[in-house]
């Protein structure tokens, strides 16, 4: 079993001084060394190509992360109501921690599955890592460029044609103009939109929109890829194609964060996994152990 497959996600708060040595950390020894069947073949091929290397860089560090939402018991969004409540001191909030004391470290090339039930804080976690949401407490350090595939095509303008949206969405992801122009044909080709590229996006089917979004977002070979249940994009043919594209990116050593309810999806893609429940990190480790644990949890709840 390749050494790199070992785990270095650890449950904190004790992770402040994580040894840089990936090969042996304290937590690993406490974990059972289970064969890691599904991922193994995939990982081995990757590892063989690369020369023996130094400990991998930490790319994402989450420390004691907490995200709090103030839930107003009644939604106040008119000025008058606000002032009335302000004067009467009735602006009561109910605090709700979507995430609390979550800590882990992800190293370059890790493919981490985030499991959890609805409302466990999975999407909140991804949003914080993507930089869209600010942490209330704790910190998140992301060292490399992140491409979030949260909701494909979220940055599209519906009145714009597909071609124009390629430039617009590309610029939102921080690409340069020359780069987009260079890759334009490749994007169109991968999205299989053909002549529809000159039709306003409002006339697209949801599959077409998702295909275009996927093609733009993955053209850049991002260093960190965030997948929020987007693996079911388009029809069967495109699904296959996108899975192939993701595989090839993983081979190139991209760091992946995958959110899912389904443990089999995590098993087939990830080499590490964590479980979130009600905003807390309840388990982290190698995919198989965690997935087994998650399935037990599911069985118990069901």
């Amino acid at each position: 079993m390749p050494e790199e497959n070992n785990l270095d996600i650890i449950t904190a708060p004790a992770d402040t001084d994580l040894p840089d040595n990936t090969e042996k950390t304290e937590t690993e020894t406490t974990e059972k060394k289970k064969p890691d069947n599904t991922v193994k073949t995939e990982t081995e091929t990757t590892e063989k190509k690369k020369p023996k290397k130094k400990p991998k860089k930490k790319v994402i560090e989450v420390k004691n992360l907490g995200v709090r939402f103030n839930m107003t018991e009644q939604k106040v969004d008119s000025l008058k109501e606000y002032f009335i409540r302000l004067v009467r001191r009735k602006l009561k909030y109910k605090e709700f921690w979507a995430l609390k004391d979550v800590s882990f470290t992800i190293r370059k090339g890790d493919r981490v599955g985030i499991l959890g039930f609805n409302g466990a804080g999975k999407s909140t976690l991804l949003k914080v890592i993507a930089g869209v949401l600010k942490a209330t407490e704790g910190s998140v350090t992301v060292k490399e460029s992140v491409v979030p595939l949260l909701e494909l095509g979220a940055g599209f303008d519906k009145d714009y044609t597909g071609a124009e949206n390629i430039y617009l969405y590309g610029s939102m992801l921080g690409y340069k103009k020359d780069f987009i122009r260079e890759k334009f044909d490749e994007i169109v080709e991968f999205s299989e939109l053909g002549d529809f590229i000159n039709v306003p996006v409002k006339n697209y089917s949801s599959g077409m929109r998702a295909r275009l979004g996927f093609s733009i977002a993955t053209i850049v070979d991002p260093q960190i890829l965030i997948l929020d249940e987007v693996l079911s994009v388009g029809d069967a043919k495109f699904k296959k194609k996108s899975a192939k594209k993701l595989k090839s990116m993983m081979k190139a050593g991209v760091t992946v964060l995958l959110v899912s309810h389904q443990s089999d999806q995590v098993r087939s893609i990830c080499n590490k996994a964590i479980i979130l429940d009600h905003g807390k990190l309840i388990a982290s480790g190698k995919t198989d152990e965690i997935c087994d644990q998650y399935e037990d949890l599911c069985a118990n709840k069901g």
Binding site: K127, A130, V132, V146, P148, L150, A154, G155, M172, L173
Partner: peptide
């Protein structure tokens, strides 16, 4: 809003 919620800009 839909963009602000999904992509950091």
């Amino acid at each position: 809003s839909s963009t602000i919620k999904k992509v950091y800009v």
